[in-house]
Amino acid sequence: MFSTQTFFDSFGPLFWAARYTLLVSGLGIALGLVIGALVCAAALSRVRALRRFAALWVSFLRGVPLLVQLLLMYYLLPVIGINVPAIAAAVITVGICASAYISEIWRGAIGALPPGQSEAAAAIGMAPRDIWTRIVLPQAVVMSLPALVNELILLVKASSLVSVVGILEVTRASQAQAATTFRPLEVYLAAACIYLLINLCLAGLGRYLEHRMAV
């Protein structure tokens, strides 16, 4: 029999664990946005070495599973003398991994802008810095919003992987809960509801931003 009681009781501890899910994916995307911007700038740079570096960065991080990246980082940091809590290692890894996707999202958005947009600005004598900040980036950022929200949703789901370095986020917490209650179905259904709730909110936010910033 399905135990409605267990199902509802699971929400308390799982919501508590969700703060790690949100922390890892929230800080992860924030870090990913910053590093992603730098990697994107490197990819578009006139300096060949920087373009090479960006290409390597992107292909390595997209080619190696996040789970392996997490384990690597977790065991690598102490070896090179950096002792940080598991949660920090997790956030850094998720952020670095996200930066590869985010830099490609931005590169794509910038590349999709018709060349006439910056030509019109150059033709009246605007400086490159103003062309970037006033013409290119505002449009590229808006264009990239749906893809960025999508990326954040993927991160929320991928954050379940950080349980391998011992972080008690929603998935790990539900495993523990299932083991103590012997009611895996109810517990995992509750976990699924929590992920769905978070991601539906994010999707709503994405639609709102798109609508607000669209011209």
């Binding site: 018709p114 006439g116 019109a120 013409i135 505002p138 449009q139 011209v215």
Partner: peptide, 8 residues
């Protein structure tokens, strides 16, 4: 030809 106005 394509105006190239800034849409934002």
């Amino acid at each position: 030809q394509q105006f190239n106005l800034w849409p934002h």
